[in-house]
Nucleic acid binder design. Structure first.
Lengths: 190, 190
DNA sequence: GCGCAAAATGTGAGTCACTAACATTATCGC
DNA sequence: GCGATAATGTTAGTGACTCACATTTTGCGC
């Protein structure tokens, strides 16, 4: 069930790590738009082509949006008699509250770059696609209409992303706090 | 104050109209991603270069997001004692309710293309930038904190866009109705 | 260690969005 | 008609991304 941390990482794992490492580094030092895929590849010791074998597009080095089963579970755990919008909001709240602390530095690095790059703000939104689909499915499974579910998921995720951006910009706050405050803004009725 | 509809449109106006006309036409017939800027330009009788003198990017032929002063006014007209999220939601509701009927066919055409093109869903979001800024400014001017204002504006606009997509997909509903229903989903508390 | 299938990577050529410097043509007021 | 200026064209380039095909590496059974 656990990952074997002793074995030497495979070549695939090593190049992936190298690409991410040098990519984030270059983005931070010269900006996302000023960094070329060829540069990242060269820094990682591979070809431009290889980069695209690991990421479908440049922006995916930064934004991955892995499907998170815990999120679905958290949404499902909300009381059924709540309107879908609130089920989504509270589910996201619970899921992020449970996020292990050690993961936040990596997230911060990524979000900070995305927040400071106009061309990425839209990409960030587009990349919530997996999460959005998962939330919609769960809401529908719990009895919401598809239309209602889509609006609720989109709106709540937009608040989440906005909260992430704010958190990345201001140094002092905790990730969990920022998310909570963002969700407080949109959960006005209760 | 009104536009002189009798005078022959200037060359600039004519090429602009031709680009939009043939662009939308090609997008509808072969899909956005399958349509090349060169194709649009050729259909409109100009060069690729000319296209980019009219639009900063391909997607701008579809999504323009002009700043709408009526929207700001509608947000400003909401009672100050309401939380920012509700002021934004109700402001948008009022502004779109007042939208003149004749404009909707053009919007529908555009939104339908955007809704059916994954690569444009993010672009649509990015292009609400002007509107978002305007709403944030108005909310802040009315006493909201900048953080709160940004989250509220982002979340409400996401609901609006989601509503637009739903409207574009289903034939029978009115634009105004679709927007109202979308906003109903997120205005749960009152 | 050895060999070999599969995985990982490289090469080269091409498409498309978009940019910039400079030359050319069309338009419109006079 | 004439001239300033707006509109357009030309050429050349960059960078993200794709594809077909060739080559190297890796890891595993023996």
């Amino acid at each position: 069930m656990t990952i074997d941390t002793n074995r030497r990482p495979s070549k695939r794992e090593r190049t992936l790590a190298a690409l991410v490492e040098h990519g984030l580094d270059l983005f931070e030092r010269q900006g996302y738009d000023q960094t070329t895929v060829a540069q990242i590849a060269r820094a990682a010791g591979v070809t431009e082509m290889t980069f695209f074998r690991y990421f479908p597009a440049k922006e995916h080095l930064l934004l991955d949006d892995p499907y998170d089963p815990q999120l679905t579970a958290a949404v499902a755990a909300q009381p059924r008699d709540l309107p879908p919008f609130l089920r989504a909001a509270r589910g996201i709240r619970a899921a992020w509250r449970a996020l292990p602390e050690p993961e936040t530095p990596s997230i911060r690095r990524r979000v900070r770059i995305a927040a400071g790059t106009p061309s990425l703000r839209g990409a960030m939104w587009r990349n919530t696609g997996n999460t959005e689909r998962a939330i919609v499915e769960q809401l529908v499974a719990d009895g919401a209409s598809p239309d209602e579910a889509r609006v609720a998921a989109a709106s709540v995720l937009a608040a989440l992303v906005a909260g992430l951006f704010l958190w990345a910009e201001q140094e002092r706050t905790t990730l969990a706090d920022a998310i909570e405050r963002a969700l407080d803004v949109i959960e006005v009725g209760a």
